[in-house]
């Protein structure tokens, strides 16, 4: 019996196991333990949460391996970490550290303004951000085994997450109503691989799991993204920039399970203290938006 590692099925499969769950940004082993205790299905290890990256400015890079190692040792759930767009050496390092999923992320400062990482070349799976179907399929073509809609990280404003999720879902519905002979031109317009466009039409959904990210700050936000078709949610600054992180984290986990049940949502949304302060995306100058990074 031959055992084969790093296959497409095991890469995509881990994301399938995360569905219906919440992946939380953490910057210390203590945060990671709070996230695990609250019921996170995975944690994202990074040096600063996106709202602090936004505030501090400068170049945002892969986190210190020592910090990542500390988080890996602190929890038994999967640990993800971010590499800069196109920075395949950061990805090599994260794979060597034993990270379970790499996020090639627009939240960090891009290392390459033309090319993303060739993700097929790795055994470890990758998740990438998208704003629309074409961007999602380009990333999957490069080997991403999981997608997240980008939203606008570090704002606590859900508006961009909604825009991106609706864009992906609308384009999928449009493809389903299209005759096969028009898909060639559509693939060209979407700048996406034809075989993936054909697959999406046939199956009526993305070929990999799609989480929502970038702006989730409350249980209601998480449930909204699930109602719009997300398979699960990433929460960044929304937890550890709130008044009561353990309580908010647990409530968002419950909301992601019971997203169709308003009575449960009402109960778990009660008494959580102040949510993260938040920044309206409409008030941000264009050059401060992270979602535009990625090609």
């Amino acid at each position: 019996m031959t055992q084969t590692t790093g296959t497409w099925a095991v890469k995509v499969g881990l994301a399938q196991m995360l569905k219906g769950g919440v992946i939380m940004d953490v910057v210390t082993p203590e945060h990671a333990k709070i996230a695990e205790e609250a019921g996170a299905c995975a944690v994202m290890a990074l040096e600063r949460v996106p709202s602090d990256i936004r505030k501090d400015g400068g170049v945002a890079r892969m986190s210190d391996p020592e910090m990542i190692q500390g988080i890996i040792e602190a929890v038994t759930i999967p640990v993800m970490a971010k590499a800069r767009i196109g920075h395949f050496v950061e990805a090599d390092i994260l794979q060597a550290l034993g990270i379970d999923y790499i996020d090639e992320s627009e939240v960090l400062t891009p290392a390459d303004e033309t090319h993303h990482i060739d993700k097929h070349a790795f055994k470890v799976p990758f998740v990438c951000g998208c704003r629309n179907l074409g961007e999602a399929l380009r990333r999957i073509g490069e080997g991403a085994a999981m997608i997240r809609t980008k939203g606008e990280a570090g704002t606590g404003d859900i508006v961009e997450a909604v825009r991106h999720m609706r864009a992906v879902q609308d384009e999928i519905r449009r493809l389903q109503n299209m005759p096969d002979d028009e898909l060639y031109t559509v693939a060209k317009e979407l700048q996406a691989p034809l075989h993936l466009v054909q697959q999406v039409k046939k199956e009526g959904r993305l070929p990999v799991v799609n989480f929502a990210a970038g702006g989730v700050a409350t249980p209601a936000d998480a449930a909204l993204m699930m109602r719009l078709g997300a398979d699960g949610v990433f929460v960044g600054s929304g937890i550890f920039k709130s008044e009561n992180p353990p309580l908010v984290a647990k409530a968002i986990v419950e909301a992601t399970t019971h997203y169709q049940d308003p009575e449960v949502l009402a109960r778990i949304s009660t008494g959580l203290g102040k949510a993260m302060p938040g920044l309206s995306v409409a008030s941000l100058p264009k050059e401060q938006l992270m979602a535009g990074r990625g090609w």
Binding site: M1, T2, Q3, T4, T5, G6, T7, A9, V10, G13, L14, T76, P78, Q95, G98, I99, D100, Y101, K123, V124, P125
Partner: peptide, 16 residues
């Protein structure tokens, strides 16, 4: 025994 085979890079397929 949880996570018995290691981390994600050790996840595998086999005929059984």
């Amino acid at each position: 025994h949880r996570n018995a085979f290691g981390r994600q890079v050790d996840s595998f397929e086999a005929d059984l």
